[in-house]
Each structure stands twice: as C-alpha cells, then as structure tokens.
Amino acid sequence: MKEISDLNFSENVKYTKDHEWAKLNKDIVTIGLSDYAQDQLGEIVFVELPEVGDIFTKGDEFGSVESVKAVSEVYLPISGEVVEINGALEDNPELVNEDCYEGGWLIRLKPDNLLELDDLMDKAAYLDMLKG
C-alpha cells in the first residue's frame, strides 16, 4: 500500500467517507473510486455495475469491485437514475487502478437533488479524514 502522500487526489471531485468520488458536469454526475480506495483494494479483476435506468437513493449499494485481495461494495454518494455505465470496465477492470478519476469511472447518474453534493467532502476534508 502506498503512503497517502504518494496518492493522487483530484481537486475537481467531491469525496465520500466510503472513498467514492462524484463529479458534476452540466447536469450529470460521474461516480468512481478514489485513488486511496483502489490502492487499498489492490489489483481489480472484476467490476459489477448496475443497469442503465436503475434508480438509487444516496447511500445505496450500487455494485461491487472485486480485487485479487477482496470484494468491496460501492455506495452511491447521491440519489438518482443511472444514465450510463462504464462498459470499458468489463474487459479492462484494471482501469480503476490505472486511471481512477478518468478512464476508470464507474457510472453516470442523473441526480435527484444536486444539493446532496454539498454533503460530500472536498479534497482537503477527505485528506484530513484519511490522515485521521
């Protein structure tokens, strides 16, 4: 596992305590796993994602990420409807390890309530939480 100082934390996303990130672009929110989460999981071999059209509430489990080491559920940072899933992960789940904020995104969501994003942490708050 890397030291926190060796990990990459994007400035442009909001983080959850479960180590997901959310990024708003126009009216769609993209969701993925933080660099800390992928590093903890180790080499990811399978990503289970929901279907387009599935509707979730903030905090719902929306899929799972399986690494050589463990299986980990992923939880939704905000409520909404799935409008796109990252199909590239089916053949290349390692994208979550290699490029967690760009090519390794998990799902895109049409949010119910954008204000829910305000409950998430910015980079500084997330780093504070990680450093305990």
């Binding site: 080499e43 050589v68 390692e94």
Partner: peptide, 8 residues
Amino acid sequence: LWYETGVK
C-alpha cells in the same frame, strides 16, 4: 503479497 507487476 505482490509487486508492482500485480498478482495476475
């Protein structure tokens, strides 16, 4: 447990 090469 593994190196940078990865378990796979």
